[in-house]
Design a protein around this nucleic acid. Structure first.
Lengths: 341, 341
DNA sequence: CTGAAAGCGCTTACAG
DNA sequence: CTGAAAGCGCTTACAG
């Protein structure tokens, strides 16, 4: 696999144009500063030689010589392009693709990373991480060690979603689930609810903690009881009855849907503390949040680009941790206490 | 952007282990042939030095030195990750991701390619194409010149979908739409239809031509009239009435859906000469094809890998043009002539 | 204004 | 068994 017969190099162009290889490089990179001044004639000669050939710069060589590659890495802790993950990753990937287009960057997906314990490993023997100028990380849960190491090696990266599992501050762009949760709880209180049951899977992620923390700060009139669920929800009706809750919230829309299947009571209010777009319960739009996922992705790439193009000493001036505000989706399943859906 | 403070090189490892940089390279690449024999002791010393450090090989340097990168390029002529394109690209991308995982390859998406006349350009000033060992091309229509040039530069690539726009034989993996069309027409004849109207947009793609060619070979009892449609379908009822057709086929499921909106007659049979999964007309599953798109993607990557790892002289032994068989989806909209949906 | 030279980090003949 | 050297294709000081 060394045979690259069709490959044209700067040396070849130089030969044709009758100049040195250095000059070709200068022309290609528009190096035209104080001490380098290439006459238009030479410049033209080189240009023509290039046009007539099929020359394209070898990106590996450029990179090795110290230039940016305009390649951004995309690392996902799970499969990104499977049908199941599209609900979550789809809008993010779309935002990333569009941002990359407008930044003029290519996207390197680290699909080769070996899977261990169900999750991909970022660092491994032959990681191509370094080929990228920087990397965005996606996934509900991330590996704290990966993050620490990226910081330690001062490799530019941005996590999508809030992170707090490390000592060193990690650059991220996320959604302010705490604020959203607070607002939805306010809304529930306004509608007369006094007891809410909150279903979750006890995930160990920052956003899961943000939701729980916000629940701990619920308005005085409202008591919210967290309840950890497993795969089997058959006990749920009893739990709800015993708790006296008039509303059931859950950490994501799928969990609300599952709960709704076993919870037949139409007077029970339902909501997800997460994106609800496209989700309906018995024909009614689910109450919950609208989260600006495309915008998160776009801002993550913009931040990454900023980190890449700013010398490390000046990183202090950059806001590296950003939470974007979503909005509460009122929906039709969070209703007046005592009403019916 | 030259500051790579956290970067460890082979030279550094060599210094620590007290060997030459060459030896480090040998150990890393398990070079252990006839004339190179590294004692386990040395080997171990190097291994430990590597483990203790955060060394990872620089992929740009490896590539420049002539090795494969295990990076496969993905070029799409349109946006690949937008919600609209997911219907078409989704299963293909999913197949590509999975195949890449099992081949141990990363995926480079050429999102930076400048868009001209609504389509991306493969070759441009700073293309990173060469960074990949090879490339898969996706898109309904492709640029013949791009394909010619790839062949001329003997850059390994595989097109997804049949291609015939070049003189040189282009490697591809596609679906045999001609065979599928033939079988659906047979089915229509069996159901008693004698006249069918075929709606299409007169696209200039090989698969579009394959469908038309198969229509030209329709069974004797069946007359199929191709009809080119624009965006406005309001004339369609008249056209159908005038033609005397008892069935209307179209080149894709969306076009059938659009046609169904203006064609109220429930005795009219409908079908798409394309993938129909997930499509319904008035509650009935649409008749058409089931196409193995994930398999197409997987086979395209396998073929690409084969082309990459086989010396060019032996390419003659590889079947580079492959058509996969799909199956006819009987559905509920292609019915007995005279029946009602 | 332009070229010869060093260097980026690796691999692989080629000499010891 | 192991290292010094050349080379991959580029960029960028540094000399003319």
């Amino acid at each position: 696999m060394t045979g690259k017969p069709g490959k044209v190099t700067q040396r070849e162009i130089a030969r044709i144009a009758g100049v040195s290889q250095t000059t070709v490089s200068m022309v290609l990179n528009d190096r035209d500063g104080s001490n380098i001044r290439i006459p238009d004639a030479t410049r033209e000669r080189v240009r023509r030689a290039i046009e007539q050939s099929t020359y394209v710069a070898d990106p590996a060589a450029r990179r090795l010589a110290g230039l940016d590659n305009k390649i951004l890495g995309v690392f996902t802790y799970e499969s990104a392009l499977s049908p199941e993950s599209m609900d979550f990753y789809g809008p993010l990937l779309n935002g990333i693709e569009r941002a990359a287009e407008s930044l003029g960057c290519d996207l390197l997906f680290f699909t080769s990373s070996p899977v261990e314990e169900g999750r991909r490993r970022l660092f491994h023997r032959n990681t191509r991480l370094r080929l990228a100028d920087g990397c965005v990380l996606l996934g509900q849960q991330m590996d704290g060690e990966d993050l620490e190491r990226l910081v330690a090696e001062s490799f530019p990266f941005v996590a999508v979603g809030r992170r707090d599992e490390t000592d060193a501050p990690v650059p991220y762009v996320g959604i302010d689930y705490g604020a959203l949760t607070g607002r939805l709880l306010d809304r529930a209180a306004e509608l007369g609810h006094e007891k809410v049951l909150y279903l979750h899977r006890d995930l160990n992620s920052p956003t899961a903690r943000d939701r729980l923390a916000a629940i701990g700060r619920a308005p005085g009139a409202l008591a919210v009881a967290p309840f950890i669920v497993g795969d089997d929800l058959s006990d749920l009706p009893q739990v709800v009855a015993r708790s006296g809750a008039t509303a059931v919230f859950a950490e994501d829309a799928f969990l609300v849907e599952d709960a709704a299947l076993v919870l037949a009571d139409p007077s029970l209010s339902l909501a997800a503390l997460a994106e609800v777009r496209g989700h309906r319960i018995g024909g009614r739009t689910l109450s919950g949040f609208h989260t600006p996922r495309q915008q998160v992705a776009a801002e993550a790439l913009a931040l990454l680009q900023q980190l890449i193009s700013t010398p490390a000493e000046e990183h202090g001036g950059i806001e590296i941790q950003r939470l974007l505000q979503g909005e509460v989706a009122l929906g039709e399943t969070l209703i007046l206490r005592g009403g019916t859906r």
